[in-house]
Amino acid sequence: MTPSLTDLEKGQSIGRRTVELSRADLIRYAAASGDHNPIHWNDRFAAEVGLDGVIAHGMLTMAVAVELVIAWAGDPTKVVDYQTRFTQPVPVPEPEHGSPETPTAALEVSGKVGRVDAESQTARIDLSVELASGDARSKVLTKAQAVVVLN
C-alpha cells in the first residue's frame, strides 16, 4: 500500500536491506544496459587502469539501491527524481570457487524521509548505501536522493 504523505515525518525510516552482487550480476547488467566497459568484467584490464580488480557499474549500484524506495512506495512510477554521486567503487572479486553466481560483494541500503513537501505532494527519500563486504564499511553513494510522488 502506498504510504500517505500526511503520515510521514522527516527522519522516519523506510527500511533497510542487504543487496548482494556477483560477477554474474555484473555480466547481466552489462548486457541489459549496453555498458560493456571491461573494468566491470575483466580483472586484468581493471588492474591496468589502476583498480584492484573488477568493480560494479556505478549505475548498477544506483539502480539496486532505489528498489528499496520502490518497494516502500509500492509503485515504480512514483519515483519522479533520482540522483546520486558516486564516491567509492564497489569491488566484486572473482569467487575462489563455485559458480560465478556466488555473491562476492554486499551493499547495505537504508533510507529515511529527508523532506516532505505538501504543495508538490512529494517526499524526498535520502538513501544510505554502504559497502558491507571487504575490509571496511564505506559509503559508495553520497547525496543519493529519490523524490516520490504520494497522492
Binding site: R28, A32, A63, I70, P76
Partner: peptide, 17 residues
Amino acid sequence: EAVREFARAVKAEHPAH
C-alpha cells in the same frame, strides 16, 4: 523484452516491469 531484461538485471521486483 529490453525492459524486462533491464529490470531483472537491477533486481527489480515490481510486476509492472
